[in-house]
C-alpha cells in the first residue's frame, strides 16, 4: 500500500514535470537536450568534441549508424550498397547547420513525424523493442557527436 501510494505520487509529479518540459526540452533515459523552434539542437550532447574519424566508423557500422543503408555518399564510393531511401548526403553540411543535423540524427521525427529514418538518440515511445535493445538509444551521446563531426566534413 505504502509503495503503491508513493509510486502514484511520483507518477503524477513526473507527469506534471513532463507537461511543463514538453514545450521544448525532451527527457528520456538519454541526456536532456533543447530543441530550438522545432528545427535544431544547437548545444552538443557531450563536453568532448566530436571525432570525425570515429564518426565515420559509426556511420558505416551496420550495427550502429548503418547510415549507408538509406543514404548515398559519393565520397564513400569504395563501400558497396548505398541505399536510396533517404536523400544523398553529399554537401549536407552546406544545406544544414550543425544543430539542424544534430536534431535529424537524435530524433528526426521532430522535423517530420512520418519519416522512416530512425531516431538514433531516443529511448521512449517505442513499441515492442527486442529485449537486448530495450531502454537503450541506438547510439551513445558521444557517438552522435562523432557522427556529427563526420557529417560536417560533407561539403561540396
Amino acid at each position: 500500500m505504502q509503495t503503491k501510494m508513493s509510486r502514484r505520487a511520483y507518477g503524477s509529479i513526473a507527469l506534471a514535470g513532463a507537461l511543463t518540459l514538453a514545450i521544448n526540452v525532451v527527457w528520456a533515459e538519454t541526456m536532456k537536450y533543447e530543441v530550438v523552434d522545432g528545427e535544431a539542437i544547437n548545444a552538443a550532447l557531450t563536453d568532448q568534441a566530436g571525432d570525425a574519424a570515429n564518426g565515420k566508423k559509426v556511420f558505416l557500422n551496420r550495427k550502429k549508424g548503418n547510415c549507408l543503408a538509406c543514404h548515398v555518399v559519393s565520397s564513400l564510393s569504395d563501400q558497396p550498397f548505398h541505399g536510396e531511401v533517404g536523400p544523398p548526403l553529399d554537401g549536407v553540411a552546406d544545406r544544414l547547420s550543425p544543430g539542424e543535423m544534430r536534431l535529424r540524427v537524435v530524433n528526426p521525427k521532430v522535423v517530420n513525424a512520418d519519416t522512416i529514418m530512425p531516431a538514433f538518440y531516443r529511448t521512449d515511445g517505442f513499441e515492442r523493442v527486442l529485449k537486448d535493445f530495450e531502454g537503450k538509444p541506438m547510439l551513445s551521446a558521444q557517438e552522435v557527436e562523432d557522427v556529427l563531426a563526420y557529417l560536417q566534413t560533407m561539403k561540396e
Partner: peptide
Amino acid sequence: TQRRGQLDMACSHC
C-alpha cells in the same frame, strides 16, 4: 502502419 522496434518503422514505411 504501426511503428515497431528500436528502429521505429512500420511495414508501410518499407
